[in-house]
Simulated scan of single mutants.
Amino acid sequence: VNCPSNGILLKVVSHLAERYAGMACVTASMDDIQFEETVRVGQVINIKARVNRAFNTSMEVGIYVTVQEVLSGVTKRVCVDFSTFVAKPTGTHKVSLKPLDVQGSVEEMLEYSLASERRRLRLYNEEAFKNLMKDYYYLQNKGYRKPVAPVVLTELMRVVSIELVLPPHANHHGNTFGGQIMAWMENVATVAASRLCGYYPSLGAVDMFRFRGPSSVGVNNTFQTSVEVGVRVEAYNCEEWNEGTPRHINSASMIYYIPGRDGEKQTFPDVTYTTLDGERRFIGAIVRKRIHMARKHILYSRDEGPISVPWDRSNQVPQKNI
């Protein structure tokens, strides 16, 4: 039995962000998460979080998760994530978070420096996605449509879940925990992925996404040993259930795989689509995979040297916060 892998992260770090800001904070976005180990019942999870850098009204929080086997004492890394929290003051006064005074280890100073580059990539992500989507549609209109074997229809794997938000699901400000929403999203996405493979799959990654406010689900595309499941979350007020317009909370893309007995991941069947929305999600999965690989290369490739240098007072320059 696998423990919920992603929802627990935001619950842990929200209090850290509020302690640094001195006011209420909400989760704005999460970067790509790659799960390196599966956490199982009976194992011990160790979650560490720290503020890497503070900007004008937002901050980046680094989250580091490890798992320990009780009997052997062996500790392995589960995942590393970088989340953005935004300060929400009461009233109308403007917020200006205090700058982070970095006086720690070389690793902390390097993360402080890289936080600025990660922020730039977050801001560029949505624009890059739109441009790549246009390119793919342009190629299709020119007759370069990639042939798709009609094996499994994505529309057959859609799942809808309705959850009632109760007091234990919310923080002390009355807002639903971002981690709770993520946990619900993972549960429904797992059902959709299991319908495709006929097996209980493991969550391998979560693509970067943004929270748009305080669901229908279905498989988007398969990539040999992995499958992307798209999740959309909407919120209703109880009195508006019949006639109100739903609020779009957020959308996310989760990557699943089937662990094999010999350590190699098993393959998924090919999928196709029959609707325009299915086509959009199918192409969007390809685009997100390209962006994810490019972002991973930019931030973690060492072939061309580090993307940044550790910060210290000798190379400090004035920075304009946005």
Rank of each mutant, 00 (worst) to 15 (best):
F55D: 10
V95Q: 13
K88P: 00
G62V: 07
K76T: 08
T57Y: 07
K48P: 04
A87D: 05
Y64I: 02
V70N: 11
F82K: 07
R53N: 13
R53E: 06
T75M: 02
G91A: 03
A87M: 08
T90R: 12
V80W: 04
I47F: 01
F82M: 05
Q68P: 00
D32Y: 07
V51K: 11
I45L: 14
H93T: 11
G73T: 03
R50H: 11
S83P: 03
A49G: 15
G42Y: 02
V74E: 10
I47V: 15
S72R: 06
V95F: 09
D32M: 10
I47G: 04
K48A: 13
V51Q: 10
K48R: 15
T66W: 02
V70S: 11
R53W: 06
V95I: 14
R50Q: 12
S58K: 10
G42E: 01
E36F: 06
S96R: 15
Q34N: 13
L71R: 14
T66S: 03
F82I: 09
V61E: 08
V51L: 10
G91T: 08
V65K: 00
F55Q: 07
Q34G: 06
V80F: 08
Q43D: 13
Q68M: 08
V65D: 00
G42T: 01
Q68D: 04
V51M: 09
N56C: 13
I45S: 12
F35E: 00
N46F: 06
G73D: 01
V65G: 06
C79E: 03
A54W: 06
V61A: 07
L97H: 13
V78N: 03
E69L: 03
Q34E: 12
V67R: 04
I45W: 00
V95T: 15
H93C: 06
S83I: 01
P89S: 05
F35V: 04
F85W: 05
V74S: 08
N46T: 12
G91S: 08
N56R: 15
L97G: 14
C79Q: 07
V78S: 05
V67F: 00
A87I: 03
E69Q: 09
S58Q: 09
R50L: 09
G91L: 00
F55R: 06
I47Q: 09
I33P: 00
K98Q: 13
A54C: 14
K88G: 00
V95K: 12
V95P: 15
F35H: 02
T66H: 03
V61P: 10
F85D: 00
G42M: 04
T92N: 11
S58Y: 05
K98H: 13
V39I: 12
V78H: 02
L97I: 10
P89H: 05
S83K: 01
F55I: 02
N46I: 10
K48H: 14
Q43M: 12
F85H: 03
K94P: 10
Y64H: 12
A54S: 15
N46Q: 12
G73W: 01
E60S: 11
P89V: 01
Q34P: 02
G73V: 00
R53Q: 11
E37W: 06
G73K: 04
K88H: 05
V80N: 14
I33D: 01
T38Q: 10
P89Q: 06
S96P: 09
D81H: 04
V70A: 13
K88T: 11
V80Q: 13
A49F: 05
V44F: 08
I47H: 04
S72T: 15
V51P: 12
